[in-house]
């Protein structure tokens, strides 16, 4: 998670207002609070995570993301962030729309299903991929939509979502030359900063 935190932190202006969808135990918000002095809330459904957020002083709001973000006004946040969550929600498209309604910008990270190791596992072993960013077996995974970098960018094009910035990390979670040249093959994790005119 560490390199991802720092990269997201680099994209965020200090003193802004952020909403973290599926904030987990609040690690990202704690980081952004310390390093970017953001004012933010995390939305989370898991009560054990909510408890951890409260214990560490993170503003957390018990929310089912599948129900949308109706409680939040248009452009009421500078950034709406979704780290490693998009692949685990059912209404992916609707949530992307909600994200860019509530936030002036959206930040999304997800595991790239097109990563070469995952391709090899399917092609050579004939098994559903399991790895660092996809640690689950097919039968117990919370991920309901698996997609690649190309899939995601195609969706953005179709939905007229502007990709303002992209960083792709390799298997060691570094943003090096390889994943920059062949993101969909060498990238294990993708980070996007999105907007909509």
């Amino acid at each position: 998670m560490r390199p991802e935190l720092e990269l997201i932190g680099d994209w965020i202006r200090s003193g802004t207002r952020v909403l973290d969808l599926g904030c987990g135990d609040g690690e990202l918000l704690a980081y952004l609070h310390t390093h970017r002095q953001v004012n933010g809330y995390g939305l989370e459904i898991d009560t054990a995570n909510i408890l951890k957020c409260i214990q560490t002083g993170i503003n957390v709001i018990h929310t089912d993301l599948e129900a949308g973000l109706a409680d939040f006004g248009d452009s009421s946040f500078d950034y709406v962030i979704m780290t490693q969550t998009l692949q685990a929600v059912r209404h992916t498209e609707a949530l992307l729309d909600e994200m860019l309604r509530v936030g002036r910008q959206g930040i999304v990270t997800f595991p790239n299903f097109g990563f070469w190791r995952y391709r090899l596992q399917i092609a050579l072993q004939g098994l559903m991929p399991v790895g660092k960013t996809l640690p689950y077996q097919w039968y117990d995974t919370p991920n309901v939509h698996l997609f690649t970098i190309r899939d995601f960018e195609e969706l953005c094009r179709r939905k007229r979502i502007d990709i303002l910035q992209r960083t792709v990390l390799d298997y060691a979670h570094r943003a090096r030359i390889g994943p920059r040249l062949w993101p969909n093959l060498l990238g294990e994790v993708a980070l996007y900063r999105l907007g909509r005119a």
Binding site: T47, I50, I54, N59, V60, D71, F72, S76
Partner: peptide, 21 residues
Amino acid sequence: SREIVRALVRANRKVSYAEIP
């Protein structure tokens, strides 16, 4: 309770909210 939380978020107040089963 969510009405209260929504109003607090709109007012930019610090708030946490939990729904206990």
